[in-house]
């Protein structure tokens, strides 16, 4: 114990913070919330938090993959809206929840593949591709719904609603699903070759290519997985809302996901960060929204707060990157001069 206390030094804390910054900020935020509202740290409250964070959280997981690979996907919200609206139609036609889930997963995957192929084979910047598909997918579902909502038929409404609203041993289904998917994606990124390749491509694409990694395939797959996760999110969102309004569903999911990824300590320049970080990032974003309500900050300013959060965290990331770059640069000039 004494030894343990001895090890708690400012230096060690700094080391811990560079590696696990998301845990440090999570603890800080939790403390802040508890100070504002002493009853914050209750089981009921935390499980509600997990429930609320789940839907955007699953999107955040996909976004982290894409960002770690050095890319960006702005179309997630529109993919959710399009898949969700069509998913409700499929459900109403078939009356079978499983068919709807299969449809959503498959359809989302296809949308992701389209993004991926446009980026890799079409050689268009991911920002441009997904900005275009963001607008396109949204427009399709608004047209199909004629601006109105897609409502789940009343005969299946109650059983369908229970998917998102149900609980197991007092833990909300949505939270369980979110945690399970987090574990799967986390294992994918840390324990498989594919995960390693995603980091390599995001860190140094040319070196990755010259080491034999099929860079185009890796990029396409990250978009595909994000598409699949958007499809699953679409399914869950439909169950939670039971009515999908085409112009609003999944609105600004991309902003929330990017903000959560940034808070989660994933480098916006690619190559660095862990899935556990974006998991906590999604929860922290939800906590911040909660704190804003308690603090009586008008909800119209939510966007402002998130924008500031993104810029602020990226600035912090930059500072540490700059320090590293400076060091590398002196090394490089030395190396170049000796040549």
């Amino acid at each position: 114990m004494e030894k343990f206390l001895k090890n708690i030094t400012w230096e060690n804390f700094k080391k811990f913070n560079t590696k696990y910054s998301y845990i440090v900020s999570f603890v800080l935020l939790l403390t802040l919330a508890t100070i504002i509202n002493p009853r914050y740290f209750s089981y009921r409250n935390l499980s509600t938090l997990a429930l609320q964070a789940s839907i955007k959280g699953i999107i955040t997981l996909g976004m982290s993959l894409v960002i770690i690979a050095g890319l960006i996907d702005l179309s997630v919200g529109s993919m959710v809206a399009l898949t969700s609206g069509l998913g409700v139609v499929v459900l109403n036609q078939t009356g079978n929840v499983w068919i709807m889930l299969a449809f959503c997963a498959a359809f989302g995957t296809v949308l992701g593949v389209i993004n991926g192929l446009l980026v890799t084979k079409g050689k268009i910047a991911p920002f441009i591709v997904t900005l275009a598909t963001m607008s396109a997918y949204r427009s399709i579902i608004v047209q199909l719904g004629q601006g109105g909502p897609f409502n789940v038929d009343s005969e299946i409404l109650d059983s369908f609603r229970m998917i998102a609203a149900g609980e197991v041993f007092g833990i909300p289904n949505l939270a369980i699903i979110f945690i399970v998917i987090t574990i799967i994606i986390s294992l994918l990124m840390s324990k498989t070759k594919f995960g390693r390749y995603v980091y390599a491509v995001g860190s140094n694409e040319q070196a990755a290519r010259l080491t034999g990694i099929n860079v185009d395939l890796v990029k396409t797959l990250t978009f595909t997985i994000t598409g699949l996760l958007s499809g699953i999110t679409a399914f869950l969102l439909a169950s939670r809302l039971t009515s999908i309004t085409a112009p609003n569903a999944g609105q600004s999911f991309e902003l929330d996901a990017i903000a959560a990824v940034a808070i989660g300590g994933i480098a916006m320049t690619g190559g660095r960060g862990v899935i556990a970080g974006s998991f906590l990032g999604a929860i922290m974003l939800q906590m911040i929204e909660g704190i804003l309500i308690i603090a009586k900050i008008p909800p119209f300013l939510n966007g402002l707060v998130k924008g500031v959060i993104i810029i602020f965290t990226v600035l912090l990331q930059h500072r540490s990157v700059l320090k590293r770059k400076k060091r590398l640069k002196t090394e490089a000039t030395k190396a170049a001069a000796t040549e």
């Binding site: 390693r196 390599a200 995001g202 860190s203 140094n204 070196a207 690619g270 190559g271 660095r272 590398l328």
Partner: peptide, 13 residues
């Protein structure tokens, strides 16, 4: 630096 080093990965990776 440009063609081999993957700067965000560890030595062993």
């Amino acid at each position: 630096k440009e063609r081999s080093i993957i700067k965000d990965l560890s030595v062993v990776n």
